[in-house]
Amino acid sequence: MVPLSWYLTLAAALFAVGLFGVLARRNAIAILMGIELMLNAVNLNLLAFWRYLWSDNLTGVVFIIVVLAVAAAEVAVGLALIISIYRRRSTVVVEEIDLLRW
């Protein structure tokens, strides 16, 4: 039997790792990867709660489906933006994308 806290701990660690990727990576695509990790940590949490606390209620599963849809949309738009920026400014380093900075 796997206790619920194991899943929660793993999800917390995964979330923190993803957050580190978001905060520290210079490449925009790598930041997207970090975001994906964070979303997966959330999904893991949701499913664990569903399985351990409310398995007669479908809200958790539906929530995961919505998160998946949002993730797919986010990746599509995000990558499109990155490639568009890459075409115009020849960079994907977020620190160099500073046209609007003072």
């Binding site: 039997m1 796997v2 206790p3 619920l4 806290s5 929660l8 399985r51 351990y52 606390l53 398995s55 007669d56 479908l58 599963v61």
Partner: peptide, 13 residues
């Protein structure tokens, strides 16, 4: 409070 509990028995919706 529920952190250490196990999975519900009647699973599989």
């Amino acid at each position: 409070p529920d952190a250490s509990r196990g999975p519900l028995v009647d699973a599989e919706v």
